[in-house]
Design a protein around this nucleic acid. Structure first.
Lengths: 151, 151
DNA sequence: TGACATCCCATGAAAATCCATGCTATCCCA
DNA sequence: TGGGATAGCATGGATTTTCATGGGATGTCA
């Protein structure tokens, strides 16, 4: 499917536009929707981004795990889909970030796109430095590792 | 899958380009992505290299072991994927090393590719000499061995 | 008609691509 | 077995293309 990898920092211009890194666009263009789905992280001052097909996948999981009219289902669906915003690329691969995302992630005139495999996050570059450092410490100290095993 | 074996030292030119040893390219070319994934070692002044399929494997493991929005998932993904850079070979089998990798591994105008089985490392040749010596002594004194057991 | 979104084009910097060269190991045939 | 041809590989440099970014023009909705 293609993975979101590496970290890229781009500028937000006066109009609130920002270029989605070319490599990320390539991953996103695998499905027919020419854009990206964004929603705010529930726990971090960051914006999460996924492809439309990943959104489909999450939708299926919600339906599998919860009865269709249960309260749990509706609560999760409300948060997950109610807060999700589809944004279409302009001709040059840019998107315009809605104001509440900019507020939530405390973005100034720059933003970092952080690849996380099947998804990515958008951060204030300064905040991300700390986040990165803290993640590394956490991964190292907790010994969260992956053993290599071919499937 | 093919293993990364032996050590080769190549030149880094003015533009930061370096030839990936032909034997390594052969191993990497087993999957459809014509390049290599690099990230910095968490503990050593070296760069680590793996194939895209290894990266895929790691991604699957992360998703299997951690809930998609859990903090553990995000921290691991940040370290693992946010710091990973996919580099495509040019027509002659070279890659251009990003500056922060050159800094981290303290590379001058040369670099050693060290085969390590499923992955390889890129070292400053001088630093690697010490590393090699120290590894050998450590293995000898601790009597590190391998159990012969597949899977 | 003003605010805002969308589309289009220009530009500079960076990255990808292409071509040339020399070295070395290998092969082939006399 | 010697020696020349050949192919693969690392290296250097030039050229072309892509990409991020800025700004203007056009369209749209309240």
């Amino acid at each position: 499917m293609g993975l979101f990898l590496s970290t890229t920092t781009n500028k937000i211009d006066k109009k609130g536009r920002i270029s989605v890194p070319s490599a990320f666009r390539t991953v996103l263009s695998k499905d027919d929707f020419a854009g990206v789905i964004l929603f705010q992280s529930y726990t971090l001052p960051a914006i999460e981004g996924v492809s439309m097909s990943t959104m489909d996948m999450m939708n299926n999981r919600v339906d599998q795990n919860f009865a269709f009219f249960s309260n749990d289902h509706d609560e999760l669906a409300t948060v997950l889909f109610g807060g999700a915003v589809p944004l279409v690329f302009d001709g040059d691969g840019r998107i315009t970030l809605p104001q509440h995302f900019i507020d939530h992630a405390q973005l100034g005139d720059q933003a970092s796109f952080v690849g996380m495999g099947h998804k990515f996050q958008i951060w204030n570059p300064e905040l991300f430095k700390d986040r990165q450092k803290q993640s590394l410490e956490s991964v190292k100290s907790q010994g969260v590792t992956l053993s290599r095993k071919d499937t």
